[in-house]
Design a binder for these strands. Structure first.
Lengths: 208, 208
DNA sequence: TACAAAGTGTATCATAGTGTATAAAAAAAG
DNA sequence: CTTTTTTTATACACTATGATACACTTTGTA
């Protein structure tokens, strides 16, 4: 399988993959156009035609595009998707709102699997250091509103992104710290609260 | 192999090699024409045909030219080895596959030591300028699949040869940019990915 | 409901650059 | 001089790109 791709075509595939990951659909011709630096929709349409011809894209009956044989994450050819890095959480706003996103970091698709939404969160404090999460680490979080007992979850408590261990009790939810610092206390919540996501991996602090 | 070359043919090879090293492609027929002082594209095309006939150039299936061997390599006193120059990376194929090699460039054996495999790669962008690697520089890479923390490695990320600093963390691998441009982000990968090689030297871009 | 605005994919035509081919002109060799 | 080789001047087909237009769908609003 030796598919000769031009630079533009490779850029297009990566752009489409990211768009799929974050918005759940493929970009329009004009969005691809501006993203690739073209000035005519025709040029982007031609790129798409070429990719369809090469069997990488497919056009469904309803006109939508589908990315076919892209996701083969072998160890030699690493593929990545851009995951938003959430910095400070702004009050009263969804955690993934534009104003909370500091930037996008490429993450291997073997960590951030297409089909789910992820974000990266910078850990603060030492409330989870027994779980290997220390101040400044990056936490890769899969966005979902449900959790199992023992999961490390991200929750919005008092307009702050909190990382704790999830424990569902008889009629309430407890968020447990995992720290050797005794000053951190469990947080007790009612059952009808929502988690923002579940931690998948942590990346030790990157000194930049 | 004593290939007798006319002056014009030798000039053409030098010109083509410079284009390969600095622009990453072979010149068009008309550019060769003006460079050699011809006034008709036919003349330059004839030169190319002759060089193909002598086995110095090769025409690929897609029409691009490839520099098979370099004239300097014929000179006995020059203690050089021909190192493949890798251009666009074809997806799903080893980085040193024939279709990725634009040509061969003579490099001193004091840099490319016999016993290892090397290739040359053209740096793109400014993501490593703090490490002294700037856009357009040629990077001499020793081919190997292991790396130490802090090594400047070449990896295949999203069908592109990426040059970054290698950092192995607890449960993942991070490729760090070394730039004073903040827009470059680290790339987060899993442990089961392979490095293509380690940068040995960089050859700064020269003006043509 | 009706209508306007914006966004969608697609098509048309023009332009510039590409490699290549043809035949005439010029130069070199006999 | 004639013959052969090299160089020139064009022409042709092909590709990539750009500017623009057209019909269609969605969406918000009156």
């Amino acid at each position: 399988m030796k598919t000769q791709l031009s630079q533009r075509q490779a850029d297009a595939i990566r752009y489409i993959r990211n768009w799929l990951m974050h918005k759940g659909k493929t970009p329009s011709v004009r969005e691809l156009m501006t993203a690739l630096g073209y000035k005519s929709p025709r040029s982007a349409a031609l790129i798409i035609e070429k990719l369809i011809q090469k069997g990488i894209l497919r056009k469904r009956s309803n006109g939508d595009l589908q990315l076919i044989k892209d996701i083969d994450a072998d160890s030699v050819h690493a593929r990545t998707v851009d995951i938003p890095l959430v910095g400070m959480v702004t009050c009263g706003v969804p955690i993934l709102a534009q104003e909370n996103i500091e930037g996008y970091i490429p993450v291997s698709v073997s960590l951030a699997k297409p089909g789910f939404k992820y974000f990266l969160l910078r850990a603060k404090g030492d409330s989870m250091n027994k779980a290997g999460i220390n101040d400044g680490d990056l936490i890769l979080v899969r966005q979902q509103s449900t959790a199992q007992n023992g999961d490390i979850v991200v929750a919005l408590i008092d307009d702050e992104a909190t990382v704790k261990e999830f424990q569902h009790r008889k009629n309430c939810v407890v968020l447990m710290p995992r720290s050797n610092n005794k000053s951190h206390k469990p947080i007790i919540l009612t059952e009808n609260f929502q988690v923002q996501g579940v931690a998948v991996t942590t990346i030790p602090k990157l000194e930049v």
